[in-house]
Design a protein around this nucleic acid. Structure first.
Lengths: 151, 151
DNA sequence: TGCCATTAGTTTAGGATCTAAACAATAGGC
DNA sequence: GCCTATTGTTTAGATCCTAAACTAATGGCA
């Protein structure tokens, strides 16, 4: 049986292609540095790390690695860079001298806020083009995708 | 006015966060090589390039660069690698000796098919968890996102 | 108490990916 | 024929990541 002759398969094909195009766009976006606050240009890794630490966060290096899905070595390197830019602070763990706790400096918090604002604005721009009900369905789809990809 | 006290903002915030999580997952996925057909492991760039050439495609290097949103130099490098793996073929342009035309070899076509099948299977898995109508809305959302990002 | 496996984080070498800029060669209008 | 634009390549360097070897501290347990 020819795969393209089935109308349901045709539809799946088109949808799959559109999803592919979206991934390409995100790839392009995720390549270039952007300015957030007056912290200067931040690379994608840097801003993702700031985001993962969180505004009020105090997180271990290893937790950060798990959250971002990279090795501890990768975290050491990006946190080194962020510390050199005075965006994050490494503090000693009170009860375990092997650990260090990472948190945002004031400038880091400003970058966090600015990045969050960009995301929110983007998301609101999407929402403005959908009805109440459509947004709910979109969010449900995103959650399904998240579940599918987390396995 | 506090941004978090508004229920509409709260909802946008949660949705925006979920979208952020999806981007993180895609980032992780887009980092590691995968096997398609018996072409051996292909890096993300390699498979994206094969995808952009297309199954029956004959495309100029510069068109490929435009389609993938990278510089011509980047394309030269990845096509060099794909040619060394015998997955693509460079042919001279009949009327313009500056240009070269890139197309898929038989092994390249096999990798293309295998990759396409993975995408389709993934998309069908998503579709199986949504109603007919929900899929339509999801696809509409993806198209809106594509439009927003292409600017 | 002292041993030792586990855990936290760092270092290093190297691979993948990309860009910017300089470059060579051809094309095509005037 | 000249000159500018275009095609593709080369090269150096930045970013981002991994794997593996390493240091140091923890904590269970004999």
């Amino acid at each position: 049986m020819n795969n393209e002759s089935n109308p349901t398969n045709q539809e799946a094909n088109r949808g799959s292609k559109n999803l592919g195009r979206l991934i390409l766009q995100l790839r392009r976006l995720e390549r270039q540095p952007h300015t957030f606050g007056h912290a200067g240009k931040l690379t994608p890794s840097e801003i993702h790390t700031i985001d993962a630490i969180g505004y009020d966060g105090a997180i271990l290096m290893s937790e950060l690695a798990a959250r971002l899905g990279v090795t501890k070595g990768a975290i050491t390197q990006v946190v080194d860079r962020l510390e050199a830019k005075s965006l994050v602070i490494r503090s000693p763990h009170p009860h375990d001298s092997r650990s260090s706790i990472v948190s945002l400096s004031e400038d880091g918090k400003e970058a966090y806020r600015a990045h969050e604002a960009v995301h929110l604005e983007f998301y609101n721009q999407l929402r403005s083009q959908l009805s109440e009900q459509e947004i709910k369905i979109f969010e449900k789809s995103i959650e399904i995708l998240n579940n599918m990809l987390s396995k």
